[in-house]
Each structure stands twice: as C-alpha cells, then as structure tokens.
C-alpha cells in the first residue's frame, strides 16, 4: 500500500514524536509513505476564518503536489487532515470556488482536479485498510495490563470526515483492544481540548483540559492516546498549569497512539521518540508492561 504523506508543520518540531512513530509503524505495517515534495503549511484553523479562497488555495497546493500515480494522501495531524479533506470537498461541491482555486494554483504552475485525491486520516488507514487480521499478526508485545484512554479530539469527527461514528468514534478503541490493551470507554473522548483557547482565555482553556484529564483519571486510565498534535500539546504541556490553577495532581502521560502502537509491534522505544512528552510515559509503560528493558527510563 502506497500513499502520499503530508506531515504538516507540527510534526516537524513539537510533535516530532508523531512523525517518527508514524513512519516506524507504517514501515512495520507495510505502508509506504511518500512525503510530498515541497509541501506547505495547511494554514491551521485560523486561515479559513480570514479568507476562504486563500485558505483553500494554500491547502490545495498540497493536493496538487500529490504525484500523479497516487490517489490517496494521508495526514497524521487531525487539523491538517480536516483542512485537506475540507478543501477537496469544497472544491468538489462549489465549482466556482474550484475554478478560482485553480487560477491561484496556476500562478505557481500547478493544477488540481477536485476529487482526484482521497484525503485519509492515519487512524482510518490503519484501522480499515490494514485491518484487524494483519495487525494482530504483527503484534510482538501485547499491551496486556495497560489501561489506555483513546482521545480522538474534535477534528476527525466532523461530518465530512471518514470516521466510524462522528458522535462516538470507536476505531482507536478497537485498535488498542486488538493490541491487547484495556481500553477505557470514557465519555469525553471526542470533546474539544480547547485548541488555541490557551492563547485567548487561560481559565477557559484550563477548564476544558481539566475535564478531559479528570474523566481519564475517573476511568483509571494509565495514559491518554492522541491523534492530534494540538490535543497532545494542550493536555501535556499545560498539565502543570492546570494542576496549579485547580490545585489538582494530574500526572497523566499523553502520547501519540502511533507511539504505543509501535511498542506493541515490537519497535525499539527509542525509535518511537519517547521522552519528549513532559509527563514522562516511560515509568508507567515500564511498570505496567513489566519490562524495564523494553522501555528504558
């Protein structure tokens, strides 16, 4: 299976662990990821509220860069995924917009036929295309005894997204059940992490983050698994601030689902970029998976 790969800005720096672990896991699962040559930022969430045409053009440039022999593009970052999928859909649905975007692209010598590329989210590719049988075959170290809280965030559950159930997604739940983990079915798994609210109103943002952490703790999860760099950043980096704001004592490791999946597939932990998270996941992994040598602290 070969897909075009769009890492996005976050995966370059603060979520490098997501990029590293995605490539490692894809390698084991036999997914060839061909990174787009000269890709550009997806404009994150802000650009669309400023100017739709420009936002679309910026994003469509990436779609236009997908090699002619590929028809699927995977973006691990949930926000990038949504932007790419949304732009394609907008161009398909609104012919006029599609034309205008292509005029913009033409300035750079590019062209994109709406609908040509199917934009995929990484979880769906792993869950649907690779599937239970193949994944189970490749398990080297079952995650027995580890309680994980899958956290989908709010970007992949929009109406246009390819999710199993936008109201209550279960793909990551099932995936980690296959991998042997105890999955906690906690109710806030598709709630918003606050996004950029930290930059607008800290008390509001902290409350949103607290709810997520609180629910995971309530269900006795050992860690939260993310599929979006923004979610991971908010829950991990702001956990200390949340603690001092609410006088709580959260110490919940927040990692990317591909990192833990990598462990189950027998990938060396240092090839999965553990240790960059602020709340260190390694002690919990060592304690729960009962193998200090597997995950060196």
């Amino acid at each position: 299976m070969k897909l075009a790969y769009y890492p996005g800005c976050s995966l370059e720096v603060n979520s490098a662990a997501y990029d590293v672990s995605t490539r490692a896991v894809a390698d084991v699962l036999g997914i060839t990821l061909q990174e787009l040559d000269d890709w550009n930022c997806c404009g994150a969430t802000e650009y669309f509220s400023q100017d739709e045409l420009t936002a679309c053009a910026v994003i469509a440039r990436n779609l236009a860069l997908v090699e002619k022999d590929l028809d699927q593009l995977v973006a691990p970052c949930a926000a990038c995924y949504l932007n790419l999928a949304k732009t394609d859909k907008l161009m398909v649905d609104h012919e006029e917009l599609g034309k205008q975007v292509n005029q913009c692209l033409a300035a750079g010598g590019l062209q994109y036929t709406p609908g040509r590329v199917r934009v995929r989210n990484l979880l769906d590719v792993i869950y649907t295309d690779v599937g239970e049988e193949e994944i189970k075959k490749k398990i080297k170290k079952p995650l027995t005894g580890l309680r994980v809280a899958p956290y989908y965030g709010c970007q992949v559950v929009r109406p246009i997204c390819e999710t199993d159930n936008p109201e209550y997604p279960m793909q990551m739940d099932h995936l980690f059940q296959w991998l042997g983990a105890e999955v906690v079915d906690y109710p806030v798994k598709a709630h918003c992490c606050g996004g950029h609210m930290t930059q607008i109103s800290e008390p509001q943002a902290f409350e949103m983050i607290r709810r997520l952490l609180q629910s995971a703790v309530h269900y006795e999860a050992d860690m939260i698994l993310c599929m979006c760099p923004m979610c991971q950043l908010n829950l991990d980096a702001y956990q200390g601030r949340v603690n001092s704001h609410f006088k709580t004592e959260f110490k919940m490791p927040i990692i990317f689902f591909t990192q833990l999946m990598g462990i189950a597939l027998g990938i060396e932990p240092d090839k999965l970029d553990f240790g960059k998270e602020l709340v260190d996941a390694r002690p919990v992994l060592a304690a729960k998976l009962g193998a200090a040598e597997t995950v060196s602290v």
Binding site: E167, Y186, P187, V188, E207, R211, Q214, S215, H218
Partner: peptide
Amino acid sequence: AEVTDAAR
C-alpha cells in the same frame, strides 16, 4: 447532544 457521566 449527549448523555454523559463526565461531571464538571
């Protein structure tokens, strides 16, 4: 929208 046991 939802029924939840996640208390705020």
